[in-house]
Simulated assay, not measured.
Amino acid sequence: MALTEFVLSTGSNIAVNILSNRLDTFLSDRLPRGQRLALWRASLLASPNQYFRISIAYLYRIYIDGEYLLIKGRRIDQYQPVGGVRKVYPSAKILSELGVLDDDCLKIDDISRHDLRVRVPARKLLRFLTWYESREDREVDQQREFIEELIRPGFLSADLFVPIATQYRYTVPTFHFSAHFQCQELLYHEVFDVKLNSEQEKAMRQLKDTPSDQYVWVDEESILMLGHDKRLKRKPFQIGEHARLLISKDYKLFNH
């Protein structure tokens, strides 16, 4: 082997090892081992023109008397956790610097514009995630989705619930091949407990006692069975799979 080839080969191996170690450090407490290995492999073997689809969302865990509050989805006919995709500020330059592209799987409208639902060059995934964790130039609080999904429709009072207090619970990343979108995909779900004072809890209980087709209160079994009712032997409604993340960070999505 020529010296230049040896140097290039050795340098490439060192770069791969460094990237592997950095990805391992970054994701070791976030991704299950199997997914972590799949992400390493996909990142390191990706072509320069390959992209991963990334979606970063935060979910509210609203839990009263053994039941969770789920809201009717705007895009999909299902009940799902209150919450949604985080926003990036229009002034952010990092996305263009990394060559990040808009999502090409879902239509971008006034509601979804500036969502952190994007396509990231596979070889720049670590830099993208490092930027996200830095909290720079992107949405960092948990107010907007609560207002959009519970206050604005009139389910709860702005005077009583804005601002809403939340407490971080855990982050659940899921790396998989999306059969629906036919691409490698990293879903990043951050789960927050909603912290209610006595007046807010009273209002939330009133909401719980007010029937609506726009939201449901369901127990753990209903979520785990994605809406199927064993007593009725049918599924009266569909529950989004990511609702399972409200119960535990150990539930794996797309693991049927």
Rank of each mutant, 00 (worst) to 15 (best):
S96Q: 15
D193C: 03
L187V: 08
A92H: 05
I76C: 05
R244P: 03
V16M: 10
D213H: 14
R41T: 14
I71N: 10
R41W: 11
D213M: 11
Y170N: 00
R127Y: 12
I151G: 00
G73D: 05
E145I: 05
F177L: 05
I62R: 03
E5P: 01
R244F: 04
C183K: 05
V88G: 03
W217T: 02
A122W: 06
S28R: 15
S55Y: 07
L101A: 07
L44D: 04
L106R: 15
V88N: 01
I223A: 00
L95G: 06
L207Y: 04
Q200K: 11
K230M: 03
L44A: 04
Q35I: 00
V100N: 01
F155T: 02
G11M: 09
R36M: 13
H189V: 07
F192R: 08
R61S: 08
P211F: 05
G83Q: 02
Q78F: 10
G227L: 00
I14E: 05
R30F: 13
P173Y: 01
T4R: 13
M225H: 12
D250H: 14
V16H: 09
N21M: 13
L69V: 02
I56W: 10
G11I: 08
S43E: 02
L19A: 11
E136S: 13
R61L: 04
Q142T: 14
D159G: 12
D65A: 10
I247S: 02
V218N: 03
R75M: 08
L246Y: 04
M204N: 01
H228I: 01
R36H: 12
H228L: 01
F192Q: 07
V172S: 15
G84E: 12
F161Q: 03
T171A: 07
R169N: 11
R135S: 09
V194R: 06
L246C: 01
S55R: 15
D77H: 09
K230D: 01
D209H: 15
G11T: 11
K249W: 10
